[in-house]
């Protein structure tokens, strides 16, 4: 297999034609999104350049403390992103629950994937740990985000149903069971859908990257399957922990809606 084609600065610059096309579309339609599109393109470019330099250093100097620190930073940023999205809507208790759930859900599934499934040696090898952590943490963030949105909506729009169930002798857990189940379903649906379409409708980014880098497609597929299942696990565990602990924050000690 031939080596990968190195992209020159001019070749990368040529890809910005797509941004120009999007800008032309929104401009002609009168959609006021130009600023956001330019900002997101610039931020993406700068963030990736920075990440590239950091990764070059980290990969050249493997160190368990640096690897763990980077993963913690990713997790913290993911938690911050969820908090920022629901600014003003979350109680202090719910914020703690979200942080704990994302930390445990993504952390436990990541460690299992790295140590038990792939068996990375040494365990902190940044070449494996960091990109896989990025995928697991990022997807768990998306799942928890959807779960929090759906939980807040459910507890608002279905408040009367929850109240009626309490009046009829339900515990808060029973009164919210339907909301929790629907929320869990909607939060893991994107992951399930992406698994359904994988390999037929689209080739996932990680696998595409590995194939471009010259890895045999069969090895790339094996990695993709393992990581996709790890992502499913991380999303499901983070979401269910958020919901199982989070619903209680809508009730007081006297099992009344607050």
């Amino acid at each position: 297999m031939e080596g990968i084609i190195e992209l020159t600065l001019w070749q990368v610059a040529a890809a910005y034609l797509f941004v120009v096309i999007v800008l032309l579309i929104v401009k002609s339609r009168g959609i006021k999104k130009e600023g956001e599109i330019v900002l997101s393109s610039v931020r993406m470019t700068l963030q990736l350049i920075l990440a590239g330099y950091v990764l070059v250093y980290v990969l050249d100097n493997p160190n368990p403390f640096i690897t763990v620190a980077i993963v913690i930073l990713m997790e913290a940023f993911a938690i911050y992103t969820v908090m920022a999205k629901f600014k003003g809507l979350l109680t202090g208790k719910l914020k703690k629950i979200i942080s704990l759930s994302m930390g445990i859900g993504a952390g436990a599934c990541l460690l299992y994937l790295i140590l038990a499934v792939i068996g990375v040696q040494p365990w902190y090898d940044p070449q494996y740990f960091i990109p896989i952590a990025g995928m697991v943490v990022g997807n768990s963030m998306t799942g928890v985000s959807l779960a929090v949105k759906s939980l807040l909506e459910g507890m608002t729009t279905r408040r009367q149903i929850v109240e009626e169930a309490l009046i009829l002798g339900a515990t808060p857990r029973e009164a919210t069971a339907d909301i929790i189940n629907r929320t869990f379903d909607s939060a893991i649906m994107p992951t399930i859908n992406s698994m359904l379409g994988m390999g037929i409708i689209f080739l996932p980014g990680m696998m595409t990257g590995q194939i471009l880098a010259g890895v045999s497609p069969t090895t790339a597929i094996a990695y993709q399957i393992a990581i996709m299942l790890g992502i499913l696990g991380a999303v499901a565990v983070s979401v269910i922990l958020t919901l199982q602990m989070g619903y209680r924050t809508f009730f007081n000690r006297e099992e009344q809606l607050v």
């Binding site: 309490l166 009046i167 002798g169 339900a170 515990t171 006297e254 099992e255 009344q256």
Partner: peptide
């Protein structure tokens, strides 16, 4: 217990 009470005194 509030839940047990609601099961006895139903509204």
């Amino acid at each position: 217990n509030p839940v047990q009470h609601r099961r006895k005194v139903v509204m």
